[in-house]
Design a protein around this nucleic acid. Sequence first.
DNA 1: AATTGACTTAAACAAATGTTTAAAACAAAA
DNA 2: TTTTGTTTTAAACATTTGTTTAAGTCAATT
Lengths: 204, 204
Amino acid sequence: MTKANIDISTEEKLKEAARVVFTRKGFAATTVRDIAAEANINLALVNYYFRSKEKLFDLIMAETIQKLFEKIRPIIYDETTSITEKIESIVDHYLELLIANPDFPLFIVNELLSGAKRLPIMTDNGKMFLNSYFVKQLGALRMEGKINFHPVNIIMNMIGMIIFPFLARPLLLKSGALGESEFRAIVEERKKLIPLWLTQITNL
Amino acid sequence: MTKANIDISTEEKLKEAARVVFTRKGFAATTVRDIAAEANINLALVNYYFRSKEKLFDLIMAETIQKLFEKIRPIIYDETTSITEKIESIVDHYLELLIANPDFPLFIVNELLSGAKRLPIMTDNGKMFLNSYFVKQLGALRMEGKINFHPVNIIMNMIGMIIFPFLARPLLLKSGALGESEFRAIVEERKKLIPLWLTQITNL
DNA sequence: AATTGACTTAAACAAATGTTTAAAACAAAA
DNA sequence: TTTTGTTTTAAACATTTGTTTAAGTCAATT
């Protein structure tokens, strides 16, 4: 057994440290030295294992997006569930994930700004979303005359309502408008409310 | 008349260029040379006029936030208008502003990530929002039993629904899911829909 | 015309940052 | 034990980046 096999640590530690720092500060504001320090590992090893700061970032970004969508895909491609059931499922899964990683939305949005280069990973998954059975169901909703607006609005509202609290989180906490526990309570409350609101909106 | 009075250009040109570049790339990813180049003005003049990159950013940030809230304040402190009227007003003003500056939400959100130092300007205005008559009206809504959830949810939903399309914009455009004109059409559509949806949600 | 004071420029500086190098440490194989 | 290939380390390198400097330009004032 070579050292490479025993030692899951170094490479994995670096990735984990990079994930933490990139998420907290964004790509541009993060230095390779930050990552090395966070991992308590020699600076040169970042380039040794990942060749460059950019490659490391791309790797983490790809993995994160991947993890994100592979949870959603089975839900939105399920042809046996109703719109309402899908919404409940998506909201629940998404919010659970965000409760565990509260600054993840800021991370993504931050990279939307600067990283036009790194977009393909996301656009591909975005298309995957737009081609889903869920979107077809929403389209049918319009055909049936139940809604009189572009179905993409429903998706926008859903994701918007899911992620907004997490975008506003630093503002809400630092301003003292909410405490950590109140924030958590509101998010928990929204888990049930968002699907309710969405059905009201779509007249279901 | 000194040169300082004639020449509104240099300082103002730099500020405008800085606004453009900061908005496009965020604080960390923007270099002073980027700004100078965008303005076609000598590098040293950035520090000559604004002392530092950070001071320049703070100035622009403060002005932008200021401009943003001074439009909203009279609306949300108006004691003569109903909740519905306020919502219509806010949505309309906000969306108009965002149509003119589509990457403004990304800019703000981007700085929420890194700039814990630059938050005070925003938290102050956040408090201004939370102390408004609008929020009191929403609170009353709960007292009357018309809604059975924390009123802050309505604000979250409103802002979330307003800004989300602009956060997703680069993704939607680059992925080809929407064209520029379709995006514009959807936003225009939402101008009327969002208030409608919000009244459905609040049982008004 | 000479002077003043604000503005502009090109060059330089110091610090920070991504990356590379060359040697050392180390564990497994021969 | 010696050898081999991988991993780790400290130092160095080349750029980039924010900032400063010192000289130059220019218009108004004296």
